[in-house]
């Protein structure tokens, strides 16, 4: 069994997780009996070739999908027992997301996009927090621009600000630099880790980018729906522990 550092409490634990789909007459098992746990405040990347089950695993861990068997425990809550709305509430309170294609709402401005998670909770007076975050990602002069008026890098920065607005305990990033050029990618990765550190968030990144994976404390390598290796970046892990 693969485990995280025993020193920190676990924020995500996965046991015997399996996900199968029916494809025509065949049953396709995309995730096979995976078991691992992630320590709170740590960073972890999930890597592997296309079709290895990375995105499916991310979806299961974030409560976006339901497993065929096995369990996922997120922030102490077993996800299997929750209905869709309770899952949504859990995501809204404890989870942040960053996507490859930014996934901003095109009809809202940058500021409004960042405010959405808090507003869904019914919170008011959210604008100041959103403005602070947009300032942190360097977009203080783009508050009232619509996504279509922003570059790819700027859109991803808005997405980062949105991901951190609810002070998530865990952040799932799905290929966050997949749609960006090298220079912009570097800036986004830098921001991602900077904010992650500032908010003390656990970070799980699905990526093909080995440089990005190299910046996380732990790398889970998948192939054919199974974890084939679980490497710890001792240098980073040690640094984190010493923090």
């Amino acid at each position: 069994m693969l485990t995280s550092s025993p020193a920190a409490p676990t924020i995500l634990s996965v046991e015997q997780l399996t996900k199968s789909y029916k494809s025509g007459d065949r049953i396709l098992t995309v995730v096979k009996e995976m078991t691992f746990s992630i320590a709170e405040g740590s960073t972890c990347s999930i890597v592997g070739p296309s079709g290895s089950g990375k995105t499916t695993l991310l979806g299961l861990c974030a409560g976006l999908d339901r497993p065929s068997s096995g369990t996922v425990r997120l922030n102490g809550t077993q996800l299997n027992s929750l209905d869709e709305d309770s899952l949504a509430e859990l995501r809204n309170r404890h989870v942040g997301f960053v996507f490859q294609t930014f996934q901003l709402i095109p009809t809202l401005t940058a500021l409004e996009n960042v405010m959405v998670p808090l507003e869904l909770r019914g919170e008011s007076q959210t604008a100041n927090r959103a403005k602070d975050l947009l300032r942190q990602v360097g977009l203080e002069d783009r508050l009232h621009h619509y996504p279509a008026q922003l570059s790819g890098g700027e859109q991803q920065r808005v997405a980062l600000a949105r991901a951190f607005i609810n002070r998530p305990k865990i952040l799932f990033a799905d290929e966050p630099t997949g749609n960006l050029d090298a220079e912009t990618s570097q800036r986004i990765v830098h921001l991602l880790f900077e904010l992650n550190e500032a908010f003390g968030t656990t970070l799980i990144v699905v990526t093909h980018d080995l440089d990005l994976a190299g910046r996380t404390q732990r790398i889970l390598k998948l192939r054919g729906g199974s974890v084939v290796s679980d490497e710890t970046n001792e240098h980073l892990a040690g640094a984190a522990r010493s923090d």
Binding site: R91, R93, P117, R162
Partner: peptide, 8 residues
Amino acid sequence: LRTLGARK
């Protein structure tokens, strides 16, 4: 919206 925590 569902991903960001919106209820049905």
